[in-house]
């Protein structure tokens, strides 16, 4: 099964870069990445900046570009994993290891077309 783990948090809860807490958190993310790669579970992962740009096409075919949604107080997607693991319990175990599960939340979404045979 392939899953996307979507990690959200409130930007105000962000750990500030350069602090010892930030360094400690980064070490945990790196350790988790290495563990997932060694187990063959890792497809991809990345953090996301919050500077989004929104694109829509109108009925006339005109492309409109606007500054993306940004809300200080709302939970926003800030990072994701793409995983290949045996089942939902395995995905839950990874989600529970992420620092994000402590200060934010992790949504597990199965990828379409990768249902068990």
């Amino acid at each position: 099964m392939q899953y996307m783990l979507q990690m959200t948090y409130r930007p105000e809860d962000n750990t500030e870069e350069g602090t010892p807490e930030y360094e400690a958190e980064m070490r945990r993310w790196n350790a988790l990445n290495e563990e997932l790669k060694a187990a063959g579970h890792y497809i991809g992962a990345s953090g996301l900046t919050l500077d989004a740009t929104t694109v829509r096409k109108t009925a006339d075919g005109d492309v409109t570009v606007t500054d993306g949604p940004y809300a200080e107080t709302k939970e926003v997607l800030f990072s994701f994993y793409l995983l290949d693991v045996p089942d939902l319990d395995a995905a839950i175990a990874v989600a529970a290891k992420t620092p994000a599960s402590e200060y934010g939340s992790v949504d597990i979404r199965p990828l379409v077309g990768f249902e068990p045979a």
């Binding site: 899953y3 089942d87 939902l88 319990d89 597990i108 199965p110 249902e115 068990p116």
Partner: peptide, 8 residues
């Protein structure tokens, strides 16, 4: 959901 979410 049992099927698509991969609940073992």
């Amino acid at each position: 959901k049992v099927t698509t979410a991969g609940i073992p």
